[in-house]
């Protein structure tokens, strides 16, 4: 026998990941490349594309109407995300410090198991002219005729916040849960106010959770179209609506896919911005730590 030549650990990495590589390349990466391809082709009359190079879809985007859609998309997504995070932070904090974490987690997840569209329908029956709020207000004689509660920005943002609140609470909860709360007391013992302890100790430490929560909220919001379509008005349309209309109403696929390319770029700008602010924050935190060490 030629010594204890034990079989070396075989490398099965490729075999283990092969199903994912095949599935994801085929059903995710290739379709993504098709988006880019289609945006540079000419439109076929009844939907689809013709095999002819064209940049008409991109030049066609340079219109005030499309610019307005960009503006709507950015400000509605930003406003909805900001409100969602501001609501989710104290929620997640309370959950993380509670003794009944699992119970509270279940409470947060249950509404999440009802489909998005059914929850929009529920909101519609609350907000519409003869809906719950108006029935109550008119029943107690507070208003004589129904208030217009849907078809406005507030209603759109309200439902956006409703949809993404759970998405934001979950990652915030999991990072705040790992936070060492004695640090807050330490900060206060050292003379920090309650507010300073939270903004200077807690928030920097749960930064990764905030970033994830922003991702889960802001990015899908950039492409949203259903809420504006069912609860808003045409004035509130965003890029997602224009994509939807170009596919199903105008049968102009290249324009829809050019908008998708623009949307991807917008998402990436958001991403780079978040990452840069994170790095900057990490740097200032690092610097502060060095200062403290030197002191």
């Amino acid at each position: 026998m030629s010594g204890p030549k034990r079989r070396r650990k075989r490398n099965y990495g490729t075999i283990y990941t092969l199903p994912l590589v095949v599935w994801f390349t085929l059903f995710f990466l290739v379709p993504l490349l098709i988006i880019v391809l289609f945006s540079f082709l000419a439109a076929d009359i009844d939907g689809g594309v013709l095999p002819r190079f064209s940049i008409a879809a991109f030049t066609g985007l340079a219109k005030p109407r499309i610019l307005k859609l960009f503006v709507n998309t950015i400000w509605v997504s930003l406003a909805s995300t900001a409100i969602t995070i501001l609501m989710a932070l104290p929620c997640a904090y309370f959950m993380a410090r509670s003794k009944n974490k699992t119970m509270l987690l279940i409470l947060v997840i249950i509404p999440f198991w009802t489909n998005f569209i059914i929850r929009i329908f529920a909101w519609k029956s609350i907000l519409e002219a003869n809906g719950v709020i108006n029935s109550v207000l008119m029943g107690i004689g507070l208003v004589a005729s129904p208030l217009q509660l849907e078809h406005n920005w507030a209603a759109v943002i309200l439902i956006n916040v409703y949809t993404y609140l759970t998405y934001a609470i979950l990652p915030l909860f999991s990072t705040i849960e790992k936070f060492d709360f004695t640090l807050l007391e330490a900060a206060q013992d050292l003379g920090a106010t309650k507010m300073q302890a939270i903004t200077k100790v807690l928030l920097p430490n749960v930064r990764s959770g905030i970033v994830t929560a922003v991702f889960f909220t802001f990015i899908p919001l950039l492409g949203s179209f259903v809420v504006q379509q069912l609860i808003g008005t045409k004035d509130m349309y965003m890029l997602g609506n224009e994509i939807n209309d170009n596919i199903y109403k105008y049968f102009d696929w290249p324009t829809a896919y050019a908008l998708a390319v623009a949307l991807m770029m917008l998402a990436n700008v958001g991403l780079v911005f978040v990452m840069m602010s994170e790095r900057k924050q990490a740097r200032t935190l690092g610097a502060r730590r060095v200062d403290e060490a030197a002191a």
Partner: peptide
């Protein structure tokens, strides 16, 4: 490649995944 490609969908609006599969 595996690490990168599983990360990308998390930073794309879901409408992109829907319409890219429609084209596919």
């Amino acid at each position: 490649y595996v690490q990168a490609i599983t990360y990308i969908p998390l930073v794309l609006p879901e409408i992109i995944i829907g319409m890219s599969l429609l084209a596919f």
